[in-house]
Design a protein around this nucleic acid. Structure first.
Length: 1144
RNA sequence: GCCCGGAUGGCGAAAUUGGUAAACGUUGCGGUCUCAGAAGCCGUUGUAGCAAUACUUGAGAGUUCGAGUCUCUCUUCGGGCACCA
């Protein structure tokens, strides 16, 4: 064996490991366990690029390190193989996603194998495997069969809920659920099966509900919130709109508090924890009711009226609450006015009905009912008579008349309308029709009308109850249920228009113009809970229907959004907290003293919040409350390539498929598209064995399978359970999880949710799946950019020079970056003019040359100099044609895509560079296979670790890879003699210096792995080898230990050297060397001597020398004297083994 | 707008957690070996200066005997959240 032949060595060892199952983890063992997991990849068609292995290498190093330290290590790998790309590909090509997936997996496996990872492949998991997704479906069924009991703080079987309902209804149940009407036990028993199931759906953790969802028309499916970024789908970037649909969802919101609390117990990066906290979005505040001055309904109240304005009907001993206080007096004025300025037709009728002339019925004229002024009204008969003039035929009047009639009907009135014309021409029939109606109407009962729910208050949620005296209006979400009922007739048209427009605005539009302020007054007023002042009620789309109560109390002085709204609509901005300048902007900070705030005056914000909540609770106006931003996760996808949801329907009721019938496997279908009627692709299945029942046609989202895969690795072939209790109890949760931060709120949150649920139902013993999480940074690509100036040069080659003046169409014209700079600068700046013309000459020559080649014309006429504007587009040039920014023209023009392109350059074609995400479309992908071929997997592994801290993003560059390769060659040479390159070690005892070098490295390597500081341990290895080389060390004692340290990073070369050392077993079985501090003990130290903190020179002293003696020796030194300039030092600080500082 | 994380030679980066800034690697330059090249090997490479020496961690201030490291203000670059009341 001569020099280091990495290709052969690596191939041999990979075969050895596979044959001997070196990395197989065993389940039943007395050894301590260590579970290292990588986020399993989605096998895309593009294959792995050099960025992917970064995390795998790190986790592999840790796995190997732990094995050396006596742990039974579980380090598995698998594939997250359901997903959109394979299905999109299937739609385009007709290729079955299963086939595409299989091919991609094969390629992934080859690439992974090339890197020498110590995965236990006997435990491979694929989410698309029916043996696997059987259990994904099983977990879904458990969610369906469970509800979340807030009282016990965990999920429970739906059976416990049924028992409770049967015993005492739902009044005492404290569940995470949809709002459900109260019922008692007897009512429950009286419900039909369908009614019962519908109620249960409100409680189930997997439930069907009608909800606003993110609908992506391009992908033909709904998406979860975390799959939508900036209003477009995360996969593909297609627009997403809001749509009301009936959908399967998972009640993750039930776990909001536990998901939040759990974050404090796990070792994750601050940024990911913060992202999750943000996503969960806990906020503590209070609910608060804004009462309406008078209940809008019931209208008729017998006896005394608690609030509002009432008029007495003496004769019948009735009190009539006839209007809202806020507008009552205004209306009363109008009414008086109307009576004075009555129309002729109104007067004709009045003269016929006054004083009980007609059927002995008492009519009132121009009377206020609710928010309207009725022409004539009889309370006894709940009858309203309206005489409509011509104006009522105008379109907007028709609308408001309808609304008015509807509202009055709702209040129990019969509304009769006559036109002026009818009154004038046929009074007789008008009066007789009126008589008939009266005869056919029963006298109004004196009990309150049943119709319409009582609107007493608008409830808001606020985190700033201290600013209650700064409220100047309320804003409701346009979708708020009360909007239509509180809107006054005169605002109805405007409110309707506003509601419709905001509904039609897509999510994206709403996001795109956050700045635009819009809203509409409803005409309604609520009452301030303390001052009783009327507060106008607005609607505005800055208020979200889905959060809190969908209504806010607007405090413009102390909330920037309310401020903007108030400014825009010119609403008052009362200041209640000192400290800001509300003339310029709102003062949102939770600091300062309360002013203009009655009982809160003078308090600090924090104290004021407490006091305000206390007062609100005391008066029964509201309650301290916690809100979460986290929404339930939409779970159904209208797609083919996912796990079928194990549900069937009978009479419109969803039932779970029997667990023993799982898995529900995917059917074969003809096309991977929705049906003509818009049903999901599964509806195309003609001979699916489940077709006998009406089975659910949507499938699960991509994150379903990945939410629990880590459990399956523990016991991957179990067909009785998703994993045996023994296996789960042994492996427990993951000790180290490595993956990208892009899954911060998706996968990582869902997995935690499922884990907590599985714990609740007694299937796993732990609350958190991933104890420690390390996010590897992205390895970015270095793109080579060519400047395409075809547009600019168009005027140059304008014709072919022939008589016909045929215009030639130009191919892509790329120009070298430096020529481009001169060219574009020179056009506008005189100092570059000479160079500019040189470049123009080069361009002309190139173009002529290219024309000859492309068009076969000897002569072409060149147009005039291009205009001052440089049109250029930047194109990514495939990096395989570029080396050190220099484009290989010969090779690129040999490529079919570029064969006609014109390249303009002087000596060499220099590309511009840009760091961006590595991707196929950017043509900047570096394939690890190529690096392996050139330098070997060990070099690649070591180099990726050496690039920088694991967590940091860094651009890929091959600069430096040779240094790492050189290091491995040096290591190899340590074991071989210089003369004939034969393996040769000495069995002599190691010297002190050699031992010091080794143990320094043991210490560093051990600490660095524990701290995930892989880059620094690589440099420690380099230092070690450099030192050993200087010491000409070839001692077995030293070198054998060293290669154990190195082996997690560069396993192949170390295995080979280990074997050459005479070992018959894999180095993987060797014990990690023990660090012995004795070898590092020094007896003297070269003290840096500093003056006022600046180091000037060094002095050597024994380490056991007394501090005082050191001080004296330093002061006695002649160099010290120079810096002292004859003065006495103020102070001398001696830190043993560190530094001496003389203060002047 | 809010929240996190950065900023150190030509480049990737390191710094025992407050104690000699720039380890390790790369690049460049010089040398050696060689018919020549590759591969090795040796020297050198923060800035200014012939030098002794002085200065230097985005900017400014502060704490300290001593600050890349702690505190405050600002500049700037990443990342996350984004009408969440």
């Amino acid at each position: 064996m001569a020099s280091y032949h990495f290709n052969t060595i690596e191939k041999n060892w990979r075969e050895y490991w596979a044959k001997h199952e070196t990395f197989k983890a065993v389940n039943d063992t007395s050894l301590p366990k260590y579970y290292v997991l990588d986020m399993f990849p989605y096998p895309s068609g593009a294959g792995l690029h050099v960025g992917h292995p970064l995390g795998y290498i790190a986790s592999d190093i840790v796995s190997r390190y732990k094995r050396h330290n006596g742990f039974n290590v579980l380090h598995p790998m698998g594939y997250d193989s359901f997903g959109l790309p394979a299905e999109q590909y299937a739609i385009q090509t007709g290729q079955h996603p299963a086939i595409t997936t299989e091919e991609n997996i094969k390629r992934y496996r080859e690439q992974l194998d090339n890197l020498g990872f110590s995965f236990d492949w006997s435990r491979e998991v694929r989410t698309t495997n029916p043996d696997y997704y059987k259990w994904t479906q099983w977990i879904f069924l458990q969610l369906f069969k469970s509800w979340y009991n807030n009282a016990s703080g965990k999920a429970e079987s739906i059976e416990t809920l049924l028992k409770e309902f049967e015993a005492s209804g739902n009044a005492k149940v404290n569940a995470a659920c949809e709002e459900t009407a109260l019922f008692d036990a007897s009512q429950w028993k009286g419900f039909t099966e369908k009614e019962k199931e519908e109620i249960l759906l409100n409680y189930r953790l997997a439930f069907l509900s009608e909800a606003m969802v993110n609908w992506c028309p391009e992908l033909g499916t709904v998406l979860a919130n975390d799959e939508v970024k900036d209003g477009v789908s995360e996969r593909g970037g297609y627009p997403v709109e809001r749509k009301l649909m009936t959908q399967w969802s998972l009640r993750i919101s039930a776990y909001a508090e536990r998901l939040l609390q759990g974050l404090d117990t796990i070792e994750w990066s601050d940024s990911i924890k913060e992202a999750q906290r943000n996503w969960i979005g806990k906020s503590e505040g209070t609910s608060l009711k804004f009462l309406f001055s008078s209940p809008l309904s019931p209208l008729h109240v017998r006896g005394k009226v608690a609030s509002g304005v009432a008029e007495e009907d003496e004769e019948n001993d009735l009190w009539f609450v006839t209007g809202d206080k806020a507008i009552y007096f205004k209306l009363k004025e109008f009414a008086r006015e109307n009576r004075r300025n009555h129309t002729a037709e109104e007067d004709i009728i009045w003269q016929k009905v006054r004083n009980r002339q007609l059927e002995n019925v008492k009519f009132r004229r121009q009377h206020i009912i609710d928010r309207f002024i009725a022409d004539f009204v009889s309370f006894e008969y709940s009858l309203i008579v309206e005489i409509d003039g011509l104006i009522h035929n105008l379109p907007d009047h028709i609308i408001s008349d309808e609304a008015r009639t509807a509202r009055l009907n709702e209040l129990g009135f019969t509304v009769v309308r006559f036109t002026n014309k009818e009154v004038n021409t046929d009074l007789k029939s008008v009066l007789s029709r009126l008589s008939d109606i009266i005869k056919n109407t029963k006298t109004a009962s004196t009990s309150p009308t049943e119709k319409g729910q009582e609107i007493e208050a608008i409830e808001v949620f606020t985190t700033r109850p201290d600013t209650i005296f700064g409220v100047s209006f309320l804003t409701l979400a346009p979708e708020h249920a009360l909007v239509s009922r509180i809107t006054t007739p005169e605002y109805k048209a405007a409110v309707d228009t506003y509601v419709t427009t905001s509904k039609n605005r897509s999510e994206r539009e709403r996001m795109a113009d956050v700045k635009t302020i819009s809203g509409q007054f409803t005409g309604a007023y609520a009452e301030h809970p303390f001052t009783k002042a009327p507060i106008p009620v607005w609607i505005g789309d800055y208020v979200l229907a889905g959060y809190g109560t969908g209504a806010v109390m607007a405090v413009p002085a102390h909330d920037s959004r309310d401020y903007a709204f108030a400014k825009h609509f010119n609403l008052p901005i009362p200041e209640v907290v000192e400290g800001g300048n509300i003339a310029i902007e709102s003062y949102d900070a939770k600091e300062g003293k309360l002013i203009n705030s009655d009982f809160l005056n003078g308090l600090e914000v924090k104290a004021a919040i407490k006091k305000a909540i206390a007062k609100i609770e005391e008066e029964g106006l509201g309650k301290g409350k916690t809100n979460y931003r986290l929404r339930d996760a939409v779970f159904g996808r209208q797609r083919y390539w996912g796990e079928p949801i194990p549900i069937y329907y009978k009479d419109g009721i969803a039932y779970p498929i029997d667990e023993k019938d799982l898995p529900i496997t995917l059917p074969e279908i003809d096309k991977f598209l929705p049906t003509e009627t818009g049903e999901p692709p599964l509806a195309r299945a003609t001979n699916w064995k489940y077709n006998s029942r009406e089975i659910e046609k949507t499938t699960m989202p991509g994150w379903a399978g990945s939410s629990w895969y880590y459990l399956r690795y523990m016991d991957p072939h179990n067909d009785q359970e998703f994993a045996s209790k023994t296996a789960i109890n042994y492996w427990q949760n993951i000790d180290l999880y490595v993956g990208g931060s892009e899954h911060a709120v998706g996968h990582l949150l869902y997995s935690r949710f499922w884990c907590k649920f599985l714990k609740d139902i007694g299937k796993v013993p732990f609350e958190e799946p991933f104890k420690k999480l390390v996010n590897q940074g992205m390895i970015q690509g270095m793109s080579s950019i060519g400047v395409n100036v075809a547009q600019t040069l168009k005027p140059y080659v304008i014709s072919d020079g022939s008589a016909n003046n045929e215009v030639l169409s130009l191919p892509n014209i790329y120009i070298s970056i430096e020529l481009f700079k001169i060219y574009s600068l020179g056009m506008n700046e005189n100092e570059y003019v000479d160079e500019y013309y040189k470049v123009v000459k080069i361009i002309e020559n190139k173009l002529v040359e290219a024309s000859k080649k492309l068009f076969g014309r000897e002569k072409i006429s060149l147009g005039t100099t291009p205009s001052n504007t440089v049109f250029s587009t930047r194109h990514n040039i495939p990096i395989e044609f570029v080396e050190n920014n220099i484009l290989n023209i010969e090779r690129i023009t040999g490529d079919v895509q570029f064969k006609d392109a014109i390249f303009i350059y002087d000596q060499e074609f220099i590309c511009d560079t840009q760091v961006e995400k590595m991707s196929k479309s950017k043509r900047n992908v570096v394939n690890p296979d190529d690096i392996c071929k050139q330098f070997g997997a060990d070099t690649l592994r070591l180099y990726e670790m050496f690039l920088g801290p694991l967590q940091d993003a860094k651009p890929w560059s091959t600069q430096g890879i040779e240094g790492v390769h050189r290091f491995l060659k040096k290591t190899w040479r340590l074991f071989h003699n210089n003369v004939d390159e034969d393996f040769e070690l000495s069995d002599e005892a190691a010297t002190k210096a050699e031992l010091k070098t080794l143990h320094k490295t043991i210490k560093k390597a051990t600490e660095d792995i524990e701290n995930f500081s892989f880059n620094t341990s690589v440099s420690a290895f380099m230092v070690c080898v450099n030192e050993l080389q200087d010491l000409k060390c070839n001692k077995r004692e030293i070198l054998e230990s060293f290669i154990i340290l190195l082996s997690p990073y560069a396993p192949h070369i170390c295995e080979e050297l280990w074997k050459l050392c005479g070992h018959t077993e894999s180095i993987e079985r060797a014990t990690w060397p023990t660090f012995n501090a004795e070898y590092l003990i020094e007896n003297e130290f070269n003290y840096p001597i500093s003056f006022n903190g600046k180091v000037r020179f060094n002095l050597n002293f024994a380490l056991d020398k007394d501090i005082k003696e050191v001080e004296q020796a330093v002061l006695a030194n002649e160099q010290t004297q120079k810096y002292l300039e004859g003065k006495a030092p103020k102070k001398v600080i001696v830190v043993k083994g560190r530094i001496v500082n003389v203060v002047l």
